[in-house]
Simulated scan of single mutants.
Amino acid sequence: MTFDDEKEDGRVLGGTDPLPPSDWTGLGHASHVEALIGAHGDDLARYLRRRAPQQDVGDLMQESLGRFAALSSHAMSLVEKPGAYLVGIARNLLTDRARSAEARMQSQHHSFNDSEVLGPDPHAALEARETLRRVEQAIARLSPQTGSIFVMHRFDGLDYKEIAEAKGITVKGVEWHMAKAMLAIDKARADHK
Results as ranks from 00 to 15, higher is better:
D4Y: 13
D4W: 12
D5N: 12
E6A: 14
E6C: 13
D9Y: 02
D9C: 05
R11P: 01
R11Q: 12
V12L: 15
L13C: 09
G14F: 07
G15W: 14
G15P: 02
D17Y: 08
D17K: 07
P18G: 07
L19H: 07
S22G: 09
S22W: 12
D23A: 06
D23Q: 09
W24M: 05
T25M: 10
G26R: 07
G28A: 03
H29S: 07
H29D: 11
H29T: 08
A30I: 08
S31F: 01
H40N: 13
G41R: 04
L44F: 04
L44V: 04
A45P: 01
Y47F: 15
R49M: 03
R49S: 10
R50K: 14
R50H: 08
R50Q: 12
R51Q: 12
Q54K: 12
Q55T: 11
V57L: 02
V57A: 06
G58P: 06
D59W: 09
M61L: 10
R67F: 06
R67A: 03
A69V: 07
A70C: 11
L71M: 13
L71H: 03
H74E: 14
H74C: 05
A75W: 05
S77K: 14
V79L: 13
E80R: 13
K81W: 11
K81E: 14
K81P: 05
P82N: 05
P82V: 04
A84T: 11
Y85N: 01
Y85S: 03
L86G: 01
L86T: 00
G88I: 05
G88F: 09
R91T: 09
N92F: 15
N92W: 14
L94G: 03
D96H: 08
R97I: 02
A98Q: 07
S100W: 08
E102S: 14
A103G: 05
A103P: 00
Q108P: 01
F112G: 14
F112P: 03
D114Q: 11
E116H: 10
E116W: 01
D121Y: 13
H123D: 13
A125R: 15
L126E: 15
E130L: 15
E130T: 15
L132E: 15
R133G: 10
R134W: 02
Q137S: 12
A138P: 00
I139Y: 00
I139H: 02
R141P: 00
R141H: 08
Q145C: 05
Q145P: 04
I149H: 00
M152W: 01
R154K: 07
F155I: 11
G157M: 08
G157C: 07
D159K: 04
D159C: 09
Y160H: 09
K161N: 13
E162W: 09
E162N: 10
A164R: 01
A166R: 09
G168H: 02
T170S: 15
V171A: 08
K172L: 06
A179E: 14
K180N: 11
K180H: 07
K180S: 07
A181C: 12
L183G: 11
L183M: 11
A184D: 02
I185W: 05
I185T: 04
K187I: 04
K193H: 14
